[in-house]
Design a protein around this nucleic acid. Structure first.
Lengths: 146, 146
DNA sequence: AAGTAATTGATACATGGTATCAATAATCTG
DNA sequence: CAGATTATTGATACCATGTATCAATTACTT
């Protein structure tokens, strides 16, 4: 599980409030994403799902990941082995660090980003409604192992 | 052409220095990207290319865009109509703003980002080697038109 | 100008993701 | 709780984007 993520129970509550049905497949997929140490592609999530539930359909998983993304419960990881992997979202922490060595994804405190956005709005005149920041490098652990 | 980009001549020089041959197709493609107001997908670039040079092959354009990306001459735009559009790169200015209304892409001064990265390195212990920040919203012009 | 090596274009192919639709499972209604 | 209703599921076929192959072409070298 990622260092600090929301709990599967909370995800289910979110899903429930969104008017969508909460099914066994959904619970399973939420669990899969919530407990993964690494960003997962939809294809990977499908393979994991089939281990415990072999008849799970591919399209179902694709649909579910899309829903989770639209609800903001998972977030797409850009620029790490393509752009088709996802990590659970933390509502408040928006800066994602990805270790290019071990692949772990890690949220960092986003307060500096908030300041940056504020500053950019002030100096550019643009109205900024959304942002997407990713940092890449070598995590503290991998630096020690090297 | 994007508000402030490097000139096609400079791109050709870069290509030349990289040991790659500089061909007519390359010149054409560099020109297409350098003069586009909007992020272009490879497919779009191919269509544009065929207008002035109908027998241009699809694979050629894909290969060339990949080279340009590897050389850092174009940069992938994430999260705006997928992740398969490109804009010319400015070496010093790394923060990209995209207007969700008119689609214009615009580089902003990246100095605040440099500070943010420095701060994140200091507090997290990770060694940050690369970053990718995009801001989305409504540009100053579109705000006036609304 | 001839030889060598990279680039090109056409085609076929692979991959990732989507549309369709009958079957199933979940909710609603009485 | 039984039946009606609606959303979800899984299988299949499909499409789009991008890649591998390879003969033909183009650009450099000498």
């Amino acid at each position: 599980m990622l260092s600090n993520t929301i709990k599967p129970e909370d995800w289910l509550a979110e899903l429930d409030e969104s008017g969508l049905r909460v099914t066994a497949v959904q619970e399973m997929l939420i669990d899969i994403f919530a407990h993964s140490e690494y960003p997962l592609s939809t294809e990977q999530a499908w393979h994991v799902a089939r281990q415990s539930r072999p008849k799970t359909g591919r399209a179902t998983v694709y649909r579910m990941v899309e829903k989770l993304e639209n609800l903001g419960l998972v977030r797409r990881v850009h620029g790490y082995q393509g752009c088709s992997r996802f990590v659970p979202t933390l509502p408040e922490l928006m800066m994602l660090f990805i270790c290019l060595d071990c692949g772990h994804a890690n949220y960092l405190d986003s307060q500096p980003l908030d300041h940056l956005i504020q500053h950019s709005e002030d100096t550019s005149g643009h109205h900024i409604t959304d942002s997407q920041l990713q940092l890449y490098g070598i995590c503290a652990t991998c630096q020690q192992d090297a």
